[in-house]
Design a protein around this nucleic acid. Sequence first.
DNA 1: ATTTGAATTTAGCCTTGTCTAAATATTAAT
DNA 2: ATTAATATTTAGACAAGGCTAAATTCAAAT
Lengths: 220, 220
Amino acid sequence: MNKFSFAEENYIKTIYELTDAGKKGVSTNDISAAMKLKPASVSDMLRKLGEKGVIDYRKYYGVHITEEGKKHALSIIRKQRLWEVFLVEKLRFTWDEVTDVADELEHVQSSILIRRLDEYLGFPKFDPHGDPIPDEYGDVRVRPRIPLNEVELNGSGQIVAVKDSSAAFLRYLDKVGAYIGARIKVIEKVEFDGSIEILVDNKKTIFMSKDVAGNILIMV
Amino acid sequence: MNKFSFAEENYIKTIYELTDAGKKGVSTNDISAAMKLKPASVSDMLRKLGEKGVIDYRKYYGVHITEEGKKHALSIIRKQRLWEVFLVEKLRFTWDEVTDVADELEHVQSSILIRRLDEYLGFPKFDPHGDPIPDEYGDVRVRPRIPLNEVELNGSGQIVAVKDSSAAFLRYLDKVGAYIGARIKVIEKVEFDGSIEILVDNKKTIFMSKDVAGNILIMV
DNA sequence: ATTTGAATTTAGCCTTGTCTAAATATTAAT
DNA sequence: ATTAATATTTAGACAAGGCTAAATTCAAAT
């Protein structure tokens, strides 16, 4: 089991996250933007990661993550999400506060630590944003989900994740009373602009624009 | 509040820990041995830390930590010891397993994290080795303590710390049934070799050599 | 089929933190 | 008071990981 530096781990994680179902390969520019580094720095690192076998790197054509790379990415993501659960459930962080801290904690090297943490948290399957936590072997429990704006009128379900997990967006959701786990029902769809009205937990109604709804994922 | 790199934090912590009550200054060689780095590397870093004002550095005469350096050291030590409490009390680590992991966790930058962790742990004043945890302002609660071999015959007290916290020593203590917090009474002192016999928690007697006893600290 | 603009890579430089080998200062022993 | 041994520092090299500026390649539009 190879060891990677902080920087390398961050690249691996980012590449994995930017990998789309389509097989286009992740571009240097996208990585550069996501990590806030200059494209030149990214190019150089991609070459190195290519040599180490975690990605397939063809100059000028973006990168594809290898099976080995995927394994590493999932192990990092597992750590990140377990720490996020810890921060929210045990230390009472709000879900928009956790990212920075979890991004540091995820680099701590100790498999026993992660196993114990997992156990301590009761083997959670999803993090506070609703994203699945891979198990030790990198397997994730997927749940089928669709954007809220695609739920049909009078359709109902549960908020299980968000696409945009920026602090601003998360704070907005918190303010209007939407949260992971909330039961919702679509009670109005405005054809004109795509905005909708939903009923949350049979108690409260919320109006939201199509944009916002598109960033909320529902398990039906 | 200055920010320091991992490497710098490790130096600051080590220098603080090696600082003796006497005013000799900590030597390059001692630091080199403690951190397992070459003396040349240490020299170089001492110069830099001197320029940053956390230590007083006079070439060839060892270093003294400054007030500012001490503040930083205590904040690092606070983090380290709080994480050690977490690992032992919440994740069921044994006290000889915690050091490596805590040494990584102590570098995570987030004051809110540490404040919340402190609260979550119930504001502990001592870590699992019995060492005091500095508060946010760097104040430590000291407790007077003497080596077990200096406790008089029939004297009693409580094990509050160990001097040698090597994994081997800690495992040995665990095996014979001595632990932080144990109530002990000295029931025999052998003049010949300084070895002693103690009664632990009014239940069990343990023989130990002068060397071992000298590494166990008692609050009388 | 060229040209042009955007994306990407290369080349060269910088800082951090380590190392080895060589030089120098201090300390201990005669 | 010298000398020998030890401790420390300096000098120079190297790897990691970032940057800027310049060169190159790809792709889109004429």
